[in-house]
Simulated scan of single mutants.
Amino acid sequence: MNMNTLQEIERAVSQLSEKELSAFRVWFAEFDAANWDKQFEADVEAGRLNAFAERALQHLREGRCTDL
Protein backbone atom coordinates (compact mmCIF):
# COMPACT_ATOMS: atom_id res chain seq x y z
CA MET A 1 0.00 0.00 0.00
CA ASN A 2 1.44 3.35 -0.93
CA MET A 3 1.10 6.59 1.01
CA ASN A 4 -1.65 7.91 -1.26
CA THR A 5 -3.75 4.84 -0.59
CA LEU A 6 -3.27 5.14 3.18
CA GLN A 7 -4.15 8.83 3.06
CA GLU A 8 -7.24 8.03 0.98
CA ILE A 9 -8.33 5.44 3.55
CA GLU A 10 -7.74 7.86 6.43
CA ARG A 11 -9.71 10.55 4.64
CA ALA A 12 -12.57 8.17 3.87
CA VAL A 13 -12.74 6.91 7.47
CA SER A 14 -12.73 10.45 8.82
CA GLN A 15 -15.79 11.23 6.70
CA LEU A 16 -17.90 8.32 7.96
CA SER A 17 -21.05 8.99 9.92
CA GLU A 18 -21.19 7.73 13.52
CA LYS A 19 -23.27 4.75 12.41
CA GLU A 20 -20.88 3.93 9.55
CA LEU A 21 -17.88 4.38 11.83
CA SER A 22 -19.39 1.98 14.35
CA ALA A 23 -19.97 -0.60 11.62
CA PHE A 24 -16.42 -0.04 10.34
CA ARG A 25 -15.00 -0.65 13.84
CA VAL A 26 -16.84 -3.98 14.05
CA TRP A 27 -15.68 -4.97 10.57
CA PHE A 28 -12.09 -3.96 11.24
CA ALA A 29 -11.94 -5.79 14.58
CA GLU A 30 -13.13 -8.97 12.86
CA PHE A 31 -10.74 -8.43 9.94
CA ASP A 32 -7.81 -7.80 12.27
CA ALA A 33 -8.62 -10.85 14.42
CA ALA A 34 -8.84 -13.09 11.34
CA ASN A 35 -5.45 -11.87 10.13
CA TRP A 36 -3.94 -12.43 13.60
CA ASP A 37 -5.37 -15.97 13.62
CA LYS A 38 -3.82 -16.69 10.21
CA GLN A 39 -0.42 -15.45 11.37
CA PHE A 40 -0.65 -17.45 14.60
CA GLU A 41 -1.55 -20.61 12.68
CA ALA A 42 1.36 -20.03 10.28
CA ASP A 43 3.71 -19.56 13.25
CA VAL A 44 2.46 -22.81 14.82
CA GLU A 45 2.85 -24.74 11.55
CA ALA A 46 6.38 -23.37 11.08
CA GLY A 47 7.34 -24.39 14.61
CA ARG A 48 8.11 -20.84 15.71
CA LEU A 49 6.25 -21.38 18.99
CA ASN A 50 7.73 -24.77 19.89
CA ALA A 51 10.39 -23.35 22.21
CA PHE A 52 7.75 -21.40 24.14
CA ALA A 53 5.54 -24.46 24.45
CA GLU A 54 8.43 -26.61 25.64
CA ARG A 55 9.42 -24.01 28.22
CA ALA A 56 5.83 -23.87 29.53
CA LEU A 57 5.66 -27.67 29.71
CA GLN A 58 8.99 -27.77 31.54
CA HIS A 59 7.67 -25.25 34.07
CA LEU A 60 4.59 -27.42 34.52
CA ARG A 61 6.69 -30.54 35.08
CA GLU A 62 8.78 -28.63 37.63
CA GLY A 63 5.67 -27.54 39.51
CA ARG A 64 6.26 -23.88 38.71
CA CYS A 65 2.66 -23.39 37.55
CA THR A 66 -0.17 -22.77 39.94
CA ASP A 67 -3.92 -22.94 39.65
CA LEU A 68 -5.69 -19.62 39.85
Rank of each mutant, 00 (worst) to 15 (best):
V26L: 03
Q7T: 11
R48S: 11
F24R: 01
D37Q: 13
E10S: 13
W27K: 04
R48M: 15
N35R: 11
S17P: 00
A51T: 10
F24C: 05
M3T: 14
R25L: 13
F24K: 00
E54F: 05
L57P: 01
T66S: 05
L21E: 12
C65G: 05
S14V: 03
A29N: 10
A42P: 09
A51Y: 02
F40Q: 15
L57A: 06
N2C: 10
L60C: 04
E18Y: 00
A23C: 05
F52S: 13
T66R: 08
E54W: 02
L6V: 11
A23Y: 07
E45Y: 05
E62F: 00
L21F: 10
A23L: 14
A51K: 02
E18L: 06
A42Q: 13
E8C: 06
K19W: 00
F52K: 10
F24M: 04
E10T: 12
F28R: 01
H59D: 07
Q15N: 11
A12S: 15
F40P: 11
E8A: 13
F40H: 14
W27Y: 01
G47D: 11
L49D: 06
E45Q: 14
E20Q: 08
D32T: 12
Q58G: 02
S14N: 15
A29V: 14
F28I: 08
E41Q: 07
I9Q: 03
A29G: 12
E20H: 00
A33H: 09
T5L: 06
N4I: 09
K19I: 04
Q15L: 10
S22H: 06
A51F: 04
R55Q: 09
G47A: 08
N4D: 14
A53H: 10
F24S: 05
R48G: 09
W36I: 13
E30H: 03
E20M: 03
Q15D: 11
R48P: 04
F40E: 10
M1A: 14
A12C: 11
L6R: 06
D43H: 12
Q58M: 02
F31L: 03
G47H: 01
A51Q: 08
F40D: 12
R25F: 09
D37G: 07
L57C: 05
Q7E: 08
G63C: 00
D67T: 14
L16R: 01
N50H: 02
L49E: 09
G63L: 00
F40V: 15
R61C: 05
V13D: 06
F31K: 04
S14P: 01
W27D: 03
R11C: 12
G47W: 01
A46F: 02
A56E: 10
H59V: 04
E30D: 14
S22L: 12
N4Q: 12
L49G: 09
E30G: 15
T66M: 00
E45G: 07
A51N: 12
L68K: 06
R25K: 02
F31Q: 02
A29S: 14
F52I: 12
G47M: 05
D32K: 06
C65W: 15
L60Q: 13
E8I: 04
A33I: 03
Q15K: 08
R64H: 01
K38Q: 08
A29L: 05
V44A: 08
F40R: 15
N35V: 13
